[in-house]
Design a protein around this nucleic acid. Sequence first.
DNA 1: AGAGTATCGTTCGGATCCAAACGTTTGCCA
DNA 2: TGGCAAACGTTTGGATCCGAACGATACTCT
Lengths: 172, 172
Amino acid sequence: MSGGFSSSDDEDLIQAELDVRARVGDLGIDYESLGAVSNIFRVANRARAHLERSALAPHDLSFTAFTVLWVLWIWGEREARHLAAEAGISKGTLTGVMTTLERGGLATRRTHPVDRRLVLMQITDDGERTMEKVFPLVNSEETRLTSGMSSKEKQALASSLRSMLRALENLE
Amino acid sequence: MSGGFSSSDDEDLIQAELDVRARVGDLGIDYESLGAVSNIFRVANRARAHLERSALAPHDLSFTAFTVLWVLWIWGEREARHLAAEAGISKGTLTGVMTTLERGGLATRRTHPVDRRLVLMQITDDGERTMEKVFPLVNSEETRLTSGMSSKEKQALASSLRSMLRALENLE
DNA sequence: AGAGTATCGTTCGGATCCAAACGTTTGCCA
DNA sequence: TGGCAAACGTTTGGATCCGAACGATACTCT
């Protein structure tokens, strides 16, 4: 298969851009932004798959379940709506993920003692032990993913990502 | 809710890192890589949701359907396995997405004339017209997402992302 | 106190995700 | 030629996604 945007190879990427220009050259396209944003999706998609395969699946955790557990582990008990927002998922999805985590004994939920609308989510002892095992594995994979970058480059990357998060916040 | 990694605010992010250190300080964590990778997931997740809401949903397209159509639009007819790989999804998922696209009249599939195992996927005229309308909308949102960055910063971002794609390829 | 509004988490319907199993087709080798 | 292995896309079962609807709770105002 001829190259495409999915390649990390510079020549392939240049060819991919030529392909795109050939197709949509007259539509006034911002190729720089296209490349940047689409590659963020690509990296995220692949990195996620890799983390799931290498660190999470052996512990029966999906990426999302891991993210939810992470928030509970670091910041403790949380209302469902806040947990969902922090994990970047809808409340409906959190319901499903929490059901899975509860079934695996890694997290529990209880009704708020004063406001009966609210549900409080909490990590279990088993959940904590799992995070103590899994998180270092995840982090070492994160280190491998950034191994080709200098510290200065990582900082520049972090700055660009923050810029984009700010742009996303200003759109809402 | 107290800050968290989901914030673009520098002070919040520093506080989040302190929270993490307080929790896992003795596990030898690479905080730089943690921040970089987790923020890529965050940006990707939010940007995806934003694109779906602002440009794709009005045309009844999910992000994945858009990605599949994009590949067919730029590079033309493709075997299913290659299309799935380029779109970053499994063959099983592609089957479902193609069913949706076929139902909407935006793409079709046919059996390969020589190798009957293969299925060839193709965009329709309607699909092309939809892409001509939708893609400039998507691209202008991409421009907005990168509006806080200089051209030099975008290039540095692209370089970092390629480095990570290379790292991901070397893991497989 | 009661009605109306707002908020919560869950449910629902439909779509996207995966890996594994499956039925069909192709290629290889004795 | 026939048997076996490999490859393909679809199906399957289970999970994650969404937004909207829903039932329960809390708040506000008359």
